[in-house]
């Protein structure tokens, strides 16, 4: 059973002190306002130069890498079911410019980003990364959403890529994956697991036919 883990309630516009206090492996629940933004929004703002449709980070400093399971009724109201993060590593090329443009302090997603992204972009902007749990706690997260405040760029980007602005309370759980120094929980765990991998592979052997990727020299023969 998980007993030794620290559980923390955090504002979606957190103070520097609150951010500095977070350690990798802490369990976090959020209160306030979050917004979704992923490649559609990033390209629109960073590459196309379109202005942000809301006042960031004043309204929210919490960017959720998410497309909710949601629908908009004909009268404009919303039905929002489950919400789950999408894998963040794919957004690496935009994250530096995005942190600068949005002032986001909390990036919430699936699976974290690279140590280089933390060092080069997160730490200089005072941002940390929160990972969702499971990754399938969509129903629990759905419970934490109290209201859909706004939906921007629905027509331009579609429901999945649009910018959802959500009022949340006790929204979680999340786990602190990168802290204010740029330490990474996944990196720490990978290092521990790597120590056992040789033993796990005992009694296996490499395939007789190699693939590119197992060698990067395209002049190599694969047999």
């Amino acid at each position: 059973m998980a007993t030794g883990l620290r559980k923390i309630r955090l504002s979606t516009t957190p103070t520097d002190e609150a951010l500095a206090d977070l350690q990798i492996g802490d369990i976090v629940y959020l209160d306030g306002t979050i917004f979704t933004a992923r490649e559609g929004v990033y390209m629109r703002v960073i590459e196309d130069g379109v202005d942000l449709p809301l006042d960031l980070p004043a309204v929210s400093a919490a960017n959720f890498h998410c497309s909710p399971a949601a629908t908009q009724h004909e009268d404009g109201s919303f039905a929002l079911g489950a919400v789950t993060a999408t894998a963040s590593f794919r957004f690496s090329k935009w994250i530096g410019a995005w942190l600068a443009a949005s002032g986001a302090k909390l990036i919430i997603g699936k699976g974290g980003m690279s140590p280089e992204d933390y060092r080069d972009h997160f730490v200089p902007h005072g941002a940390i990364y929160l990972t969702t749990v499971g990754y399938g706690t969509g129903a629990l997260l759905g419970r934490g959403v109290k209201d859909v405040c706004d939906l921007y760029w629905r027509k331009e980007l579609g429901l999945a890529q649009a910018m959802w602005v959500l009022k949340v309370e006790n929204f979680g759980p999340f786990i602190v994956e990168s802290d204010s120094q740029g330490n990474s929980l996944f990196e720490r765990e990978n290092t521990k697991i790597a120590a056992n991998l040789d033993a796990a592979y005992e009694g296996t052997k490499p395939a007789v036919l190699k693939r590119f990727g197992e060698t990067d020299d395209r002049k190599d023969e694969l047999i």
Partner: peptide, 20 residues
């Protein structure tokens, strides 16, 4: 443990287990 709690929440609320 969070996943087990999530399955209960999905059934109780009648909402999808996962957002994806």
């Amino acid at each position: 443990d969070a996943m087990l709690e999530n399955y209960d929440a999905a059934k109780e609320d009648g909402r999808a287990m996962c957002g994806d």
